[in-house]
Design a protein around this nucleic acid. Structure first.
Lengths: 221, 221
DNA sequence: TTTTGCATTTTTGAATGCAAAATTCGCCAT
DNA sequence: ATGGCGAATTTTGCATTCAAAAATGCAAAA
């Protein structure tokens, strides 16, 4: 197994919450499970620690990182900045075909909204945001975006929404698509920031920080 | 020696250009120099690879990453986004004392400009940009900023400037300080982006990508 | 019963050893 | 001289091993 694969698999385990935030990471167990020895595992853990997903405690092993309310605020702020930038760049560089694809994804997402299918709605939602970042055509930006969004993914795409908030989010997405189609970078940037600000308020108000005994996975259902 | 220290020391070696971009990283040699064995060294290299400073080639070792013109463009774009965000947040959160400190740093920098001391000018310049990011009060943002700016530091703070460009940069810095003092987030954000856009154009026009045989260190003097 | 001190066990962090891959060098044919 | 092929050498990647630190368990004392 390649180094990057080891990193990816552990990342997936952490993001799925299989090892919940704050829990110790059992080296021996993970080694057996992945069929590797401790050396490559520990290399991967150090990389994930640099990413912020893992916390290393000298001589006391590693734990899945736990996000405080402050961390959440900081990450959402940065995410806003990155998406705003992506929106502007995307408007300069996006192709008609890419716009069409996003329009289709948007339509599908609205369908899921009409069906009241939050899981599928969130899936489509995420695809749209990622497509915009991809359309920005900046791999460095895409990389940072991936890493930052990974850390807030569960909060962002798991929070239950009130009907009002959901309706607002859909409206905002109409505006996002609209700005994209008009290639209005400043406008898109502005809407994306508002959109994410609202999402952040939702998440923080819902008390979704990964504090003791706040198991997000339980709320997915 | 602690893991983070190993990472830092290798990072410094790379940023100083002691191992120039594109050059192979000699594991054995570095081990002796740092007085550690290959295991912790390789852990550090993998972390630096995730940061983008090192390139890992499977079964062929690691090299100091080399930046193409495209990489440079991407990094500057992201840097613009991060500084713009930092500027806005800083205007919301900066204290009067912090503004005074930046004003003092600005005055000192202008003195170095008058003296024609580019090295000292760049040093002060960097301190101001970093102070703004710090004043944003967002550790996640600060971390990303540090990592992104590290990669373009040599290009950014080594490029020789024409008198016209230098004068323009100083003017822009006047505007930056002004916006900060007025706590005009949108204005500061706008100026910072223009400022960095100009710097990027300078760097790219000067052909400062880290391509074959383009040794930046030679030009520092 | 609770707490303190100590010995044992477990886990971490790093060095070493080993197999596989790649590079280098030498040899031979042209 | 030069170009290609194969063996020797080096280097990589990982498993194993070893020393040190921390956690655990237990007994004795308060």
């Amino acid at each position: 197994m390649l180094h990057e694969d080891v990193v990816s698999r552990i990342r997936a385990i952490l993001l799925d919450g299989e090892i919940p935030p704050g829990a110790r990471i059992p080296e021996r167990e993970l080694c057996e499970r992945l069929g590797i020895s401790r050396t490559p595992l520990r290399e991967a853990l150090k990389v994930l620690a640099a990413e912020g997903l893992v916390q290393l405690l000298p001589h006391r092993g590693s734990r899945a990182a736990k996000l405080t309310d402050n961390d959440m605020r900081d990450l959402f702020e940065v995410c806003q900045g990155l998406e705003a930038l992506a929106g502007e760049l995307a408007c300069e560089r996006i192709t008609d075909a890419e716009i069409d694809a996003i329009a289709a994804a948007h339509a599908a997402m609205v369908e899921h909204y009409r069906d009241g299918d939050l899981i599928q709605y969130y899936r489509g939602n995420r695809a749209i945001h990622e497509a915009i970042v991809t359309a920005a055509g900046n791999p460095v930006l895409a990389g940072l975006y991936t890493s930052v969004t990974a850390r807030i993914r569960r909060a962002r795409y798991v929070t239950p929404m009130t009907p009002q908030r959901w309706a607002l989010a859909v409206k905002e997405h109409e505006a996002i698509l609209n700005a994209l189609q008009r290639r209005d970078g400043a406008g898109l940037s502005h809407i994306l920031r508002a959109h994410l600000r609202h999402k952040r308020e939702e998440v923080l108000q819902a008390g979704f920080a990964e504090t003791e005994g706040n198991d997000l996975t339980l709320r997915i259902a």
